[in-house]
Design a binder for these strands. Structure first.
Lengths: 344, 344
DNA sequence: TTGTATGCGTTATCAG
DNA sequence: CTGATAACGCATACAA
């Protein structure tokens, strides 16, 4: 247990530096000694001591994850674990380790970042965030610590990030609904101070505009949260709209599965099965709705994978040309889209 | 950026060793120099270089997580992220870092363990496992690497572990059903080569036995997986049982929410609302069932928290007296338990 | 109470 | 192609 490079050196009759060279694939090493050294490494079960290596290299081959959400969110949102899985996959492929720290409170995020960076515990950081004016981003930029962000940051200039094309996601699904004959489509969105909310709404609106349509103000909701309660309330407002000149929506696009689930509840309560509903995030809840909820999958694992890829790339090579990745979303069709095709 | 202990030493007019002592709360340091050193530390924003410290201490203050499950499982089971959150919380409180590695294939688990241990990347390991004859456990024992396990291992002797009392969990809920007048209770369990499965079944059986009852073989299922399909099939078999002398179950205890969800499906398909159903794990799916599914919560965050606590305890102190922790489960009551009270 | 010297295990520089 | 030797930044035994 715990043999050092010196043990290997002695066992193979060479010096420590030679062993080091063999292990780092140094070009000018004779095949013969290489084999002898490798044999000794094998025999002794030698593995470089990471702390010693880190110290000598001043690099840790470790990336740090800063997770920032309420505890509830973590548990409910498969996004986090999905992204962490993608990160782990890429990191292992490049011989990197991954550290993480949950930060229940916003203040702690920065503390964690400071801890990771100033103690040289990690070579780079992945931020799970899309918060406006993120303190961590400011700090990391100032420290010149390499990092990548999951979720397009406000000021994306000169920073590595990965995100979905939220505009296209709702654009496409809206376009699909239009192609299927829907002409009156509602929208339930998120708080409009978030990038994602705006992008999703814009995609919806644009798809309609291309067909020369637009949604009635009474059919558009952008002032609530990603909750069932909000989704339920919005759906009911649409169903209960008193204006006789306003046709009822035959389809509703939402910005989150929870909103969509609330909308489905409202439809069930009103005994209606003639309104198509589509969610966002494709949580595991979707499958268990009645009807099963069609939803836009964000490919969390890929988001994580590419966030790690961009970061490690930046760590290992000169400034890369690639500074962001757009991960495609894909619509998972389920029964909630199967409604009678509206008459044209 | 990146000041060293020497910078602090110079700035405060003392030697490096004095700075080191101040920072590690060495007893014999004059209050005056302590303050001067601390001031310099503050002014320079000095933080010890972790690699250097690790090397000198031959300890890393980090613990490694070995996650072993199929990618799907991760995403669907809030257990993992919950436990990881609990681990992170305790680790941060003790100034430990946490590394994790997802291992899609069983073989890779051992590789990860070997990597973590032999490179001295971590001081100890937490295993997410309950697999029989676990290779990692064997290896870690042989290497004398401290570790703790989430899920009681087969041979628990001399191993740190944390788990729920699965026996008591089903015992209690079964007892509750009995108290409410149920006399014919079915059981849908997991594969009987798993400890958890056996324990949950035993708890169920024992609670009945205490009341002088036992479940009919036709009402007990222990040969399938934790899936809806299995739960659905088992429930249907109970409902369709041809034996006229066998009363229908008025309640069903399951070993997993997915099984319970399948059972609820079967009941809906048969238009029955007179059978109580209780799930296990209290996944977020439970709330969205119809009726909402009562379920036994395993307190994943606490499992992780205590796994980390036991491990760090073992790392920092002499052999601890405490070698395992039983985390209580708690029944979350929901509508699926509200059925007509059976006549006695 | 404080300073000096040494070692932790590797890598890199410089000779040879 | 290979071997000494000096860092890397910190902690500690030993002196003072």
């Amino acid at each position: 247990m715990g043999s050092t490079i010196m043990d290997v050196a002695k066992a193979s009759g060479v010096s420590a530096s030679t062993v080091s060279r063999v292990l780092s694939d140094h070009p000018r090493i004779s095949t013969e000694t290489r084999e002898r050294v490798l044999a000794a490494v094998e025999a002794l079960g030698y593995r470089p001591h990471s702390a010693a290596r880190n110290l000598a290299n001043s690099s840790t081959k470790t990336i740090g994850l800063i997770l920032n959400a309420e505890a509830d969110q973590f548990v409910r949102n498969p996004f986090f674990i999905g992204a962490m899985s993608g990160i782990s996959q890429l990191a292992q492929a490049h011989d990197y380790n991954v550290m993480y720290a949950f930060n229940p409170k916003e203040k702690e995020e920065l503390e964690t970042a400071v801890r990771f960076v100033s103690s040289h515990a990690v070579d780079g950081i992945i931020l799970f965030t899309s918060r406006t004016r993120d303190k961590c981003i400011q700090y990391l930029l100032k420290q010149k610590c390499p990092f990548s962000v999951i979720g397009r940051p406000d000021n994306a200039g000169n920073i590595l990030w990965v995100d979905n094309d939220n505009f296209q996601a709702t654009y496409q699904v809206t376009d699909l609904l239009l192609a299927r004959g829907h002409r009156t489509i509602g929208f339930i969105g998120g708080p409009d101070d978030l990038n994602v909310s705006r992008d999703r709404y814009d995609g919806f609106r644009r798809a309609l505009a291309v067909h020369g349509l637009h949604a009635a103000p009474a059919h558009v909701f952008c002032d609530g949260g990603f909750t069932e309660v909000y989704g339920n309330a919005c759906m009911k407002k649409m169903l209960d709209n008193p204006d006789p000149n306003l046709p009822m929506p035959t389809a509703v696009v939402t910005a989150d599965d929870l909103q969509a689930i609330g909308a489905l509840q409202a439809l069930r309560e009103r005994r209606r099965n003639d309104v198509a509903v589509v969610g966002f995030n494709n949580t595991e809840l979707a499958v268990y709705q009645q009807p099963a909820l069609a939803s836009i999958d964000v490919n969390a694992a890929q988001l994580g994978y590419h966030a790690a890829r961009l970061l490690i790339n930046a760590l290992e090579t000169s400034p890369s040309t690639e500074d962001h990745v757009i991960v495609p979303t894909n619509l998972v069709e389920r029964d909630s889209l199967n409604v009678p095709i509206p008459a044209r």
